[in-house]
Amino acid sequence: MIAQVVPVLFAFGSNLGGRDDTIRSAQRELAATPGIQNFLASPLRETVALTLAGPDPLAPKYINGVARADTTLAPHDLLDVMQRIESEHGRVRDKRWGDRTLDIDLILFGGRVIADERLTVPHPRAHERDFVLSPWLELDPDAVLMGHGRVAELLARIGDTTAPLGASDAGPQVEDR
């Protein structure tokens, strides 16, 4: 039996520790995971921390990025890999939208809609987060967020408060392994 290959989009964030190194390490680990191929990461961007009360300019700033890949893993198996990588990088889940060493979200899983106690895809707030849309637009100028429209139009609507980290920070480019 041949496994179905599904395109996926990940979002990464970190505002504690070696933020960009942590994200790039996690991306390399995902790219090397059996069942994940054609991994391509965006440049990283810096963003003011978003809390339950709104943007917090006094909190440590976030580094964010996205990556697209193809996978033969089932959605929840992929989520397990993502959560294992988060834990290995010191992720603690003690406060909703709190500071973190690493956050990996699954934004899209092909054209599937998933909504259960562990996973919601497409990500329910991706369309209103410039820290997802901006690096995604850099990675794919023609990107479309299922159920919401073109990423360029979504970002234009909400505005872009992110800032580029630098021209040389492109992440793992693992094509056709």
Results as ranks from 00 to 15, higher is better:
T101V: 11
L40F: 05
A31F: 09
T47S: 13
A67L: 02
D94I: 04
L9D: 03
V151S: 03
L102R: 01
G54H: 06
A143Q: 11
G65Y: 02
H76K: 12
L44P: 00
V92A: 13
V48C: 07
N64V: 01
Q173T: 07
A31I: 00
P55Y: 14
L137Y: 04
E88I: 07
L139E: 07
D116Y: 02
A26K: 01
A49P: 03
V121F: 04
G111N: 11
F109E: 00
P43D: 15
F109L: 05
K61M: 13
M1P: 07
G13V: 00
L79F: 10
F39T: 00
V48S: 05
G98D: 05
L78I: 01
I2P: 09
L9W: 08
P122N: 04
S87E: 12
A152M: 08
L78C: 04
A126W: 01
A26R: 02
V151N: 01
E153D: 13
F109W: 14
L73T: 02
R129H: 07
D116R: 03
L40E: 12
P57Y: 07
V174T: 08
W136I: 07
G35P: 00
L30M: 11
D103C: 11
G159K: 09
P122C: 08
H123Q: 06
A67N: 02
L145M: 08
M82A: 14
V174N: 08
D103M: 08
G17C: 04
P124C: 09
